[in-house]
Simulated scan of single mutants.
Amino acid sequence: MTVQADAATPSAVLDRVSLVLDAFEGPGRLTLAQIVRRTGLPRSSAHRILERLVQLRWLRRDGRDYELGLRLMELGSLAVHQDRLHRAAVPFLHELHRTTGFVVHLAVLDGTDVVYLDKIGGRLAGAVPTRVGGRQPAHCTAVGKAMLAYAGAEGGDVFGAGPVRQRTRYSIASAAQLRAELAKVRTRGIAFEREESLSGFGCVAAPVGDIGQAVAAVSICGPVDRMAFDHRLAAPVRMTALGIWRNVEDGQVRVRPTLQQSRPLTVMPKARPAAALQARAADALQYV
């Protein structure tokens, strides 16, 4: 059985399949009627695509309800584990969690959202409603602000003149406020978030990338009354970001601090992230 709409080109077919899969963003199952409403596809076309995706194990059907299937989960897991950035980050993320006790996130920017590549948090993780593959509005999160700050002129204008989504009463409420916040991030090389995405929680984040760039960001998150929004948490987060980026290129890339370019940092050994973090902790304080 071939997934094909009448008079549709192959690219149009793929566009329709993408629409169907995108409809499943978020928790829960969907019925055919809900998918038709979310995609705008004709009912017959949506039904054909859904049934074929079930056969391919991309979706799973239970009665009248559809949900994401095992094949998509398998591919998603492979994508994460095959990603060079993620592989380089894993030992440093675990060490950051061990050192601070807070939930650790690794995220990338996708439009005006952040997408989480990893989350490590032990018992505290259940209190923070994030997940690998999940999204949050970038301007409400420390990882998002850490990346938007280095996204060029468009970073502070991602919302244009339109409304800004607020998650809590502390969330940034305007493009002008966001631009001012991103200027602070560029000045200190660290992004802070205090109850902007989740009441009672705060985050400290640093960009991962070469000087003036952010290909990703790493953060720690915990109860706001237990977070120190100064060098005590900024230093280990910043050092983790630096260590990840050096490890991305197998120790061949020398990364200078975002704020100062006094001298290159030495290469951090791949096999001993904990020792490297401790050895560089004092050096990091001058940059945060």
Results as ranks from 00 to 15, higher is better:
residue 163 P to D: 05
residue 165 R to I: 14
residue 157 D to E: 14
residue 151 A to M: 05
residue 158 V to T: 08
residue 193 E to K: 03
residue 151 A to C: 11
residue 169 R to T: 09
residue 193 E to T: 09
residue 178 L to E: 09
residue 155 G to S: 11
residue 182 L to N: 03
residue 186 R to A: 05
residue 177 Q to C: 04
residue 157 D to M: 13
residue 144 G to Q: 08
residue 195 E to L: 05
residue 185 V to Y: 03
residue 145 K to G: 06
residue 152 G to K: 01
residue 195 E to M: 10
residue 188 R to L: 10
residue 167 R to S: 12
residue 183 A to W: 05
residue 191 A to S: 12
residue 159 F to S: 10
residue 196 E to N: 08
residue 194 R to E: 12
residue 167 R to E: 14
residue 156 G to R: 12
residue 143 V to E: 10
residue 143 V to G: 02
residue 142 A to S: 09
residue 157 D to R: 15
residue 184 K to D: 09
residue 180 A to L: 08
residue 165 R to M: 14
residue 190 I to T: 11
residue 190 I to W: 04
residue 140 C to V: 02
residue 178 L to C: 11
residue 194 R to A: 09
residue 164 V to F: 02
residue 178 L to T: 11
residue 141 T to P: 00
residue 166 Q to G: 07
residue 157 D to P: 04
residue 157 D to T: 14
residue 197 S to P: 00
residue 192 F to A: 04
residue 163 P to M: 04
residue 184 K to T: 10
residue 191 A to N: 05
residue 188 R to H: 13
residue 189 G to L: 08
residue 180 A to Y: 06
residue 191 A to H: 08
residue 187 T to D: 15
residue 184 K to I: 06
residue 145 K to P: 02
residue 166 Q to I: 03
residue 167 R to P: 06
residue 180 A to V: 11
residue 176 A to E: 15
residue 188 R to I: 12
residue 190 I to C: 10
residue 179 R to I: 07
residue 150 Y to W: 12
residue 182 L to K: 05
residue 170 Y to H: 13
residue 145 K to T: 07
residue 168 T to D: 08
residue 196 E to K: 15
residue 148 L to R: 04
residue 171 S to M: 01
residue 197 S to W: 13
residue 142 A to D: 01
residue 157 D to K: 15
residue 172 I to V: 15
residue 151 A to F: 04
residue 192 F to M: 07
residue 173 A to I: 03
residue 158 V to H: 04
residue 157 D to W: 12
residue 186 R to Y: 02
residue 167 R to Q: 14
residue 170 Y to N: 13
residue 149 A to T: 03
residue 167 R to L: 15
residue 138 A to S: 12
residue 192 F to E: 15
residue 170 Y to P: 00
residue 165 R to A: 13
residue 166 Q to W: 06
residue 153 A to F: 14
residue 196 E to V: 10
residue 146 A to K: 02
residue 191 A to W: 06
residue 196 E to S: 14
residue 156 G to D: 08
residue 153 A to L: 14
residue 189 G to R: 07
residue 193 E to D: 12
residue 142 A to W: 01
residue 176 A to D: 13
residue 146 A to R: 01
residue 143 V to H: 02
residue 196 E to L: 08
residue 150 Y to I: 02
residue 174 S to W: 09
residue 166 Q to D: 04
residue 176 A to W: 00
residue 152 G to N: 03
residue 165 R to T: 15
residue 167 R to H: 15
residue 155 G to Q: 11
residue 156 G to P: 06
residue 147 M to N: 03
residue 141 T to F: 01
residue 191 A to C: 09
residue 160 G to H: 08
residue 184 K to Q: 13
residue 181 E to I: 03
residue 191 A to P: 04
residue 147 M to Y: 01
residue 137 P to R: 05
residue 154 E to R: 13
residue 154 E to G: 07
residue 151 A to H: 09
residue 168 T to G: 03
residue 194 R to Q: 15
residue 164 V to S: 01
residue 156 G to Q: 10
residue 159 F to Y: 15
residue 180 A to D: 13
residue 143 V to P: 08
residue 143 V to M: 08
residue 197 S to D: 10
residue 150 Y to P: 00
residue 191 A to E: 07
residue 144 G to T: 07
residue 161 A to P: 09
residue 142 A to K: 01
residue 157 D to A: 15
residue 167 R to G: 11
residue 176 A to M: 02
residue 181 E to L: 05
residue 195 E to T: 12
residue 175 A to V: 13
